[in-house]
Design a protein around this nucleic acid. Structure first.
Lengths: 340, 340
DNA sequence: CATAATTTCGAAATCGTTTCCGCATTTTAT
DNA sequence: ATAAAATGCGGAAACGATTTCGAAATTATG
């Protein structure tokens, strides 16, 4: 219905063969400058636009990259997408974007959808539930270039971008300790996630490096349901041996903590200090301003896209080798961990 | 490279004609149950996946909807996208997403990219600079179903979804007045935008309905550059006839206001009351909590997608008629406009 | 049993590109 | 002057699916 003129029709109009017109439009050396000009100007005049599907079919590539994220309302993922899009657009690539909503079922469905070659490559961050990776393995086996960021799948031998999860969490915890915290809780989402494990390890090592004993009740498994999390954290804060510091490994758990605190008569930072992984630009506007561990989201997006495109444009000269590339986060200290 | 088995190969394996296999997989009535079963099980066994481009080429449709937004780090647009994706996924549609970064040049490039039929339909919100609509007209002329949300282009005769911009702003302004404000400023982005005009009209009518005179200096034209906006607002707040109330028509201008206020010794809500259009879930966590006009973002997303898909699945029985559908916003009063 | 009707399937065209191969014609080399 | 090479273009196949048309096989009907 919305179809315009085809190459064949354009060729007929020019009294040339379709092959000639195709070559002219693709600036082939076999075509004289004179015909090229004629073809191009006629193409513009008739408003010719090459059918992308015919081209994709013929060339076996779609000029499309799929991006799969677990959550859209999340400043980190939003920034990564902006980064990916920037580089992709530069190279003429389009972006198919899928939100799994932290739901493994949906992730599997989406991944299966991509098995048919609709996208030339994939950049993704898995859900917090993703433990088994057989669905991802299928993608990889099919030869589809795939790259992970932040929430990586360790079993797939490809390039992964993460931040220095262990070190940032270690430092973040140390910061809480320096600020006088004696009992610190760690909020986390999926315990199967590799970054969760690393962050937890950083947290634990910081605790034990003080000669303190690690209390299991201070490792709090949260879910993706906001209200449930708020209640969970509220209970934690009302318990007899409540923490005086919290390190949240996920942005939204920090927000949940704010909400939970509001329900108690505790005050941040006096009764509770809070630090969290977050890329929210509003961190400094919160009440009180949130001390954050900020990931280099935009850079991660750039690098993911760059590598994927490198692989797509030089498939034989470059491979997405099995490596983890770490780009450090930055801690920004604000009021939520500092009482003047 | 990543190509799997083709229909023809599958047919060969089954000793059937490609046409038969195609029909079997599409559950055609002309094929016996016996062969259908055989075909389907063999397809699964050989991991057959129909090539989407061959299908798109043949059927002249891509099962893809393009979404164009001016900004990704914006809770409103993020929620709209979630809404669109939800409905689209239900109907087997994929989403191509483009961020124009409030840049008209980019918007035009992206729109031109979509002229070739890569997407079956478009849902978009224009940039704050978009005044001329000839590039959008081209899309529409091509017969591509297009729908606008929030930032609409009035000249394109199609369905548009907005909120009750005039009324919400009117009420928001009245609320400031009720809270004791005597001089109110209005922060806006593009003055050519239809929603900006409507919101500004609501603001002005609320002012004049009090018998007050409208002061031109209280209409503040902002840009998309954060730091510039902060300075602009700071100057406003330091000027001799500074406002004691601000209505921000855009979420990020509210954030800019918070930052600007921090640079002065004014305090919200005592010296300045603030209300803003915003869908940020963190509005209640800000310092002080922000009074918001919240748009029904998710619903807008749902409705956009529903209508587009209705048009795509029943092209002859339904048209995207030239109408503006209004879904009301909700005002949530918080501390930024209330001193106890 | 012969014929008609119905089921079930195959051959081939088609969508719009790109590209391999081939054929003139012109230019350059011998 | 003739052979060789370069230039410029056309014809047709190919990518992988769907679909129209038609034919064979099966079943029903008289």
């Amino acid at each position: 219905m919305a179809s315009g003129i085809s190459l064949k029709e354009l060729a007929a109009e020019l009294k040339l063969a379709p092959s000639t017109v195709s070559r002219a439009l693709n600036d082939s050396y076999e075509i004289s400058e004179a015909t090229k000009k004629k073809v191009i100007s006629m193409a513009e005049k008739l408003n010719y636009h090459a059918n992308p599907f015919a081209r994709s079919l013929r060339e076996n590539k779609s000029k499309t990259i799929a991006v799969i994220i677990p959550e859209r309302i999340n400043s980190f993922f939003a920034q990564v997408m902006d980064g990916i899009e920037e580089v992709a657009q530069e190279h003429g690539y389009h972006l198919l974007i899928y939100n799994t909503h932290e739901d493994l079922e949906r992730e599997m469905k989406i991944v299966n959808l991509l098995l048919n070659g609709r996208a030339d490559a994939i950049a993704m961050s898995v859900t917090s539930q993703t433990k088994d990776s057989s669905h991802l393995q299928k993608l990889h086996n099919r030869g589809l270039p795939i790259i992970f960021f932040d929430r990586v799948s360790p079993e797939i031998p490809t390039t992964k971008f993460i931040t220095n999860d262990y070190e940032s969490t270690f430092e973040g915890t140390k910061h809480l300790i320096q600020q006088g915290c004696k009992k610190i809780a760690f909020l986390t989402l999926g315990k199967d996630l590799s970054i969760s494990k690393e962050r937890q390890r950083g947290f634990q090592d910081a605790i034990t490096s003080e000669g303190w004993e690690l209390q299991p009740s201070m490792i709090v498994q949260c879910c993706h349901e906001e209200e449930t999390n708020v209640k969970l954290i509220e209970e934690l804060l009302l318990s007899p041996n409540r923490p005086d510091g919290i390190l949240s490994s996920v942005e939204k758990l920090a927000f949940a903590t704010y909400h939970a605190v509001k329900r108690t008569d505790l005050r941040i930072p006096y009764d509770l200090k809070l630090i969290s992984f977050s890329n929210a630009s509003t961190a400094s506007l919160l009440n009180p301003a949130l001390t954050t561990i900020t990931q280099p989201a935009l850079t991660i997006g750039y690098e993911c896209a760059k590598l994927l495109i490198k692989k797509l444009t030089k498939p034989n000269h470059y491979d997405l080798i099995d490596q983890v590339i770490t780009i450090p986060s930055k801690i920004t200290i604000r009021e939520s961990t500092c009482q003047d």
